Amino acid sequence: GKMTGIVKWFNADKGFGFITPDDGSKDVFVHFSAIQNDGYKSSDEGQKVSFTIESGAKGPAAGNVTSL
Score class of each variant (00 low, 15 high):
residue 47 Q to K: 10
residue 32 F to M: 10
residue 65 V to W: 01
residue 1 G to Y: 11
residue 40 Y to E: 08
residue 6 I to C: 11
residue 59 G to E: 02
residue 68 L to N: 07
residue 38 D to T: 12
residue 21 P to E: 00
residue 23 D to V: 05
residue 37 N to E: 11
residue 37 N to H: 12
residue 12 A to W: 15
residue 52 T to Q: 06
residue 32 F to W: 15
residue 5 G to L: 06
residue 28 V to W: 03
residue 24 G to D: 03
residue 62 A to F: 02
residue 25 S to T: 10
residue 43 S to G: 11
residue 19 I to C: 06
residue 10 F to A: 02
residue 19 I to G: 00
residue 3 M to R: 09
residue 11 N to V: 02
residue 56 G to W: 10
residue 63 G to V: 15
residue 31 H to K: 02
residue 24 G to T: 02
residue 43 S to H: 13
residue 62 A to N: 02
residue 15 G to C: 08
residue 21 P to L: 04
residue 31 H to W: 08
residue 35 I to W: 15
residue 48 K to W: 13
residue 14 K to L: 14
residue 34 A to F: 04
residue 61 A to H: 14
residue 32 F to K: 13
residue 68 L to I: 13
residue 64 N to E: 07
residue 54 E to A: 07
residue 34 A to S: 10
residue 53 I to V: 10
residue 25 S to L: 05
residue 18 F to T: 00
residue 28 V to S: 00
residue 41 K to E: 09
residue 36 Q to L: 13
residue 65 V to S: 02
residue 62 A to R: 01
residue 25 S to C: 09
residue 46 G to V: 09
residue 50 S to W: 08
residue 18 F to C: 11
residue 5 G to M: 04
residue 39 G to V: 11
residue 26 K to M: 11
residue 24 G to I: 02
residue 43 S to R: 09
residue 53 I to N: 02
residue 57 A to C: 14
residue 2 K to A: 09
residue 3 M to T: 06
residue 40 Y to T: 09
residue 40 Y to F: 14
residue 27 D to S: 04
residue 7 V to L: 14
residue 4 T to R: 01
residue 58 K to T: 08
residue 28 V to N: 00
residue 61 A to Y: 15
residue 68 L to K: 03
residue 42 S to Y: 13
residue 52 T to L: 06
residue 49 V to G: 01
residue 26 K to A: 13
residue 50 S to F: 06
residue 43 S to D: 07
residue 16 F to Y: 14
residue 23 D to F: 06
residue 60 P to A: 07
residue 68 L to R: 03
residue 17 G to E: 01
residue 66 T to Y: 07
residue 58 K to M: 10
residue 38 D to A: 13
residue 20 T to G: 03
residue 60 P to Q: 09
residue 43 S to Y: 15
residue 30 V to S: 02
residue 45 E to M: 14
residue 14 K to V: 08
residue 63 G to M: 14
residue 27 D to P: 06
residue 30 V to M: 13
residue 22 D to H: 05
residue 26 K to V: 11
residue 21 P to F: 05
residue 26 K to L: 08
residue 37 N to G: 14
residue 65 V to N: 01
residue 48 K to M: 09
residue 63 G to D: 06
residue 49 V to I: 05
residue 55 S to Y: 15
residue 10 F to H: 02
residue 24 G to M: 05
residue 6 I to N: 05
residue 26 K to P: 14
residue 17 G to D: 01
residue 3 M to D: 03
residue 66 T to P: 02
residue 38 D to G: 13
residue 55 S to V: 14
residue 45 E to W: 15
residue 8 K to P: 03
residue 5 G to E: 02
residue 5 G to S: 01
residue 58 K to S: 09
residue 16 F to Q: 00
residue 21 P to R: 02
residue 41 K to F: 14
residue 23 D to W: 04
residue 15 G to I: 05
residue 37 N to K: 12
